[in-house]
Design a protein around this nucleic acid. Structure first.
Lengths: 127, 127
DNA sequence: GCTTCATATCTGGATACGACGATATGATGG
DNA sequence: CCATCATATCGTCGTATCCAGATATGAAGC
């Protein structure tokens, strides 16, 4: 019962749905999400905590960043819901913009994370 | 996107989850739900409107009562979520009590609906 | 140890939500 | 028509949620 309500709350906010849609495709850190969605880091962080406490997100530290991803156990339920509304989601402009920005962001990962990663030579995957 | 959020809001409140769990088993009218869940009729009615506007409930007038049921199109998504948490739902005491009271209530349908249906000879199914 | 940077938490103000009594609506049946 | 009964809506009040700026935590790297 309570688990269902938590999943419901996870899905009951457009920002969180955008986060889940993005993380279904690839895991991301907070600043990448905040940047792609053009919202403050604190707002995104709070939403991510909500989702984590709802049991739908997992975290893993990777070098300086904390990557968020869909918790494996919750993936079936989330995919079931989101694919059920796949058409509506594909048609959503915010989701499209998110996806574009995320792709651009991922292409820059070798230069570091976040907006001021000039000249940092360390790559994302090799600490 | 918005559809997902509406489904989320539908699931984001324990009262509404109880309603959905009950309606997955059998369609019911407002007063039966209010009685089974021991909440005021106005509260239940409001939740049912929320669920209806989220596109997950259908209504059908039957004699003097309005029966609420799961909208066919939304049934797969709802069943997917609720069966995913079937164990937690079965263990929930409120859900159990709801089910018991509903069964008792349904057995009384021939005597009419609601708490003061003494002596009404009309049955529920044959107006 | 001291910076730096990514993330988390606190703060406050605006908005939304949940419960319920009181009241309105609208179909039913005499 | 008028009364009755099931359901819907309104008004209110307390609580929860959302957002973003300010601040705190805590790992990384010199």
């Amino acid at each position: 019962m309570n688990d269902v309500v938590l999943l419901g709350k996870a899905l009951a906010d457009p920002t969180r749905v955008r986060v889940l849609a993005a993380l279904l495709r690839t895991e991301l850190c907070v600043c990448e999400l905040a940047d792609a969605m053009e919202m403050s880091q604190s707002t995104l962080s709070t939403h991510l905590q909500t989702l984590r406490q709802a049991g739908v997100l997992a975290t893993e530290r990777r070098h300086k960043w904390i990557n968020y991803s869909i918790e494996q156990g919750a993936r079936p339920a989330i995919e079931a819901v989101l694919t059920h509304y796949a058409d509506a989601l594909k048609a959503d402009k915010r989701g499209q913009r998110d996806a574009e920005r995320i792709v651009r962001r991922l292409a820059m990962r070798e230069d570091g994370c976040c907006t001021l990663g000039f000249g940092q030579l360390d790559t994302r995957e090799t600490p």
